[in-house]
Design a protein around this nucleic acid. Structure first.
Lengths: 212, 212
DNA sequence: GCATGTGAATTCATTCACAGCT
DNA sequence: AGCTGTGAATGAATTCACATGC
């Protein structure tokens, strides 16, 4: 496969969700126009995105909902389950543990870590919280493939380094700081404060800003 | 001001955070190279981003940390406070209420809403939870400027419509669904499941994918 | 006729490279 | 000399438009 942009991958997730909805409604066949409409994109964008991965439709007809859904699931790696660990059982971490969408998509949070003695060795929503000191060995032993960081900004880089040292190749970071990882490790960051700042920017500068 | 891209705005938030850190360390003057390094960008990118808003530096020298920080704060609307309401006091909503970064940046969560009778009219971390039925009137009365949606996917569009009907012009959506708003309302979405899907995509397709 | 799949055209974002100021 | 600020050049993403096949 060639190079595929981040935005294309994000849109695949959107298509996947739309397809679940179309399937639930009982639609068998949809067009790139239908898919585009629910996500406010152009039909050409949808077709181009899909074309990077193959041709899934029938000219003159459209795309078979069930099959396209399965193809995208496979492309996104949703046709299997993933072993996930979460570090930082605070407010955000705790919310993520019970976030239904994760389980639904096969992201199983198998391990929890914290450095707070009051939390360590206790059960949190059915999962044992371990000391962050034993993080590398536990990640290896449990074949963890993804780690979610929900720790304070000041601790994020240090823990990311530990995670990388354990051989984990993908990290989802919720700490409001830019962390650095080697170039064979995939890192995505969610910065909630940044998103609110974006809103306030738009309110303060409401002119040329009509949302693109 | 001309058109400024979403990515430029997001990077301004990053610069702002870096500047706080430089200031904390006692640096008085920094160059575009310094700023670029902490965020893994090119110096030209930093200068170009800033140039959309004016010229804040001195040729041959660099940028004054304190002043640049203040200028960016003003551009992002962080030199004031904002009245925010949050709808959906579940796991995610609850985490957001106690998210320190928000208060720090002047985003004050003044009102909470839910539709669960067990939560309504009770205090949640110091804020009263109101019935979502009285949402429009309360948003107006309290001059709410931003609304955070942390409700289930199926309820998101309906509540967004209510929020819009109350005249609120900006929404931060945490529901894992694409919602639609009129074109004078700013909408940002955080989809945590999508981010994990992006990671699994990269793991499944690790070849042309070395993170850009 | 109708909707896909895809090169070509266009628009948008990033990087280059250098003139201008300290 | 050093670093900003910015047009010009490059590169990336989106949209167009049409040939292709049902």
């Amino acid at each position: 496969m060639g190079k595929v942009s981040d935005s294309t991958v994000s849109r695949l997730s959107m298509y996947y969700r739309s397809l679940l909805e179309f399937e639930r409604k009982g639609d068998k066949i949809i067009s790139s126009k239908d898919l585009a409409k629910t996500e406010e994109l152009t039909p050409a964008q949808v077709r181009k995105d899909l074309s990077f991965f193959g041709s899934f439709g029938t000219r003159g007809l459209g795309y078979p909902v069930k099959e396209l859904k399965e193809r995208i699931a496979k492309i996104l790696g949703l046709n299997r389950s993933w072993n996930v660990a979460l570090v930082g059982v605070g407010n955000v971490g705790s919310a993520l543990v019970s976030y239904k969408e994760f389980q639904k998509q096969g992201f199983n949070i198998k391990l929890l870590f914290d450095n707070d003695l009051r939390k360590i060795n206790k059960n949190h929503k059915g999962v044992l919280v371990s000391d962050v000191k034993v993080l590398p060995e536990k990640l290896k032993k449990n074949k963890i493939e993804m780690v979610i960081l929900a720790v304070p900004a000041r601790a994020a880089q240090e823990i990311a380094d530990l995670v990388v040292s354990a051989g984990v190749k993908s990290i989802l970071n919720f700490a409001p700081v830019q962390i650095k990882v080697p170039h064979d490790v995939v890192l995505r960051s969610v910065n909630m404060a940044t998103e609110l700042e974006h809103l306030s920017f738009c309110l303060v500068n409401k002119d040329g800003m009509i949302e693109s």
